[in-house]
Simulated assay, not measured.
Amino acid sequence: MKGTIKMSIGERIKQRRKKLNLSVDDIAYKLGKNRATVYRYESNDIENLPITVLEPLAKILETTPTYLLGLENAKNQIVEINPSNDEMNLIKSYRLLDSNDKYKVDNYIRDLSNNIKYINNNYNKSSNLGKAAHNDFSDNEEQQKLMKEDLDEL
């Protein structure tokens, strides 16, 4: 293409971050990295991002790893959303709330979703193994029942 300048990975990261009005500190916190590392991503000091960073970073930036790598154009991104019945019920309930309560729900969801376990796509059943293995001395019967279910799933 005549006159087209290809952006680097770092430039794409910075562009998406700014478009979403996120600070470097926001990205660093959500990734579980320090701000200097995020600046190094944006300045291309670190060009070969491991997939364990690339996937959660793309999720935070509401894009895809292939876009960040320059393998697809941002305008070609199509996100298909097929909410479950539970999600639809939550949406219906949310719509019944006044603006003050919606604000509370939004903040609560934002706080929960900033937890690294929700950002990292690699969070799976193997992370439950550590929980079950380290909590087997609980006095709470309900907790013991949940831990046994976790172990049975593994």
Results as ranks from 00 to 15, higher is better:
Asn122Lys: 15
Asp45Cys: 00
Met1Ile: 09
Leu57Thr: 06
Glu141Gly: 06
Ile116Gln: 12
Leu61Tyr: 08
Val105Leu: 02
Asn135Lys: 13
Asp139Cys: 08
Glu42Gln: 06
Asn73Arg: 05
Arg12Asp: 01
Met1Thr: 08
Asn122Glu: 15
Tyr29His: 13
Arg40Glu: 09
Asp98Tyr: 00
Ser127Lys: 15
Met88Ala: 04
Asn124Tyr: 03
Leu97Cys: 07
Asn82Cys: 09
Tyr108His: 11
Leu20Ser: 06
Asp152Ala: 00
Glu141Thr: 08
Ala28Gly: 05
Lys125Pro: 09
Tyr94Val: 02
Val105Pro: 02
Ala58Asn: 08
Ala74Gly: 14
Ile60Cys: 12
Ile109Ser: 06
Lys75Phe: 00
Ser93Lys: 05
Lys2Asp: 04
Leu71Pro: 01
Asn48Pro: 02
Glu149Ser: 00
Thr64Asp: 08
Asp26Glu: 04
Met7Ala: 11
Asp152Met: 01
Gln144Cys: 00
Arg35Leu: 02
Ile13Gly: 01
Lys2Pro: 04
Lys145Thr: 03
Leu61Ala: 06
Leu69Gln: 12
Arg16Glu: 10
Glu72His: 14
Leu71Ile: 00
Gln143Asp: 06
Ile78Thr: 15
Thr63Asp: 12
Lys148Pro: 01
Asn100Gln: 13
Lys125Val: 14
Leu20Glu: 03
Gly32Met: 05
Thr4Tyr: 06
Glu72Leu: 11
Met7Ser: 11
Val105Gly: 00
Arg40Gln: 12
Ile116Arg: 14
Asn89Leu: 06
Ile13Trp: 03
Glu141Met: 09
Asn107Arg: 14
Ser43Arg: 14
Asp25His: 10
Ser93Trp: 04
Asp25Tyr: 08
Ile91Asn: 02
Thr66Asn: 14
Lys131Ser: 05
Thr63Tyr: 09
Asp98Lys: 01
Pro83Cys: 06
Asn140Gln: 05
Thr4Leu: 11
Ile119Thr: 06
Tyr67Cys: 09
Glu11Asp: 03
Lys117Phe: 13
Ser84Met: 10
Lys30Gly: 06
Asp106Tyr: 04
Leu54Val: 05
Ile91His: 01
Leu129Arg: 15
Leu22Cys: 00
Thr64Leu: 09
Lys125His: 15
Ser8Thr: 07
Ile78Asp: 13
Glu80Gln: 04
Thr37Lys: 03
Asn82Val: 14
Tyr123Ala: 13
Ser99Thr: 12
Ile78Leu: 14
Leu146Ala: 00
Ile51Trp: 11
Ser23Glu: 04
Glu149Met: 02
Ser84Gly: 09
Lys131Met: 10
Ser138Ile: 13
Leu68Arg: 08
Lys117Arg: 14
Asn107Gly: 11
Asn44Met: 01
Asp98His: 05
Gly10Lys: 02
Ser99Asp: 13
Ala74Asn: 15
Glu55Met: 13
Leu151Trp: 03
Tyr39Leu: 05
Asn115Tyr: 09
Gln77Phe: 07
Asn21Glu: 09
Tyr41Ser: 08
Glu149His: 01
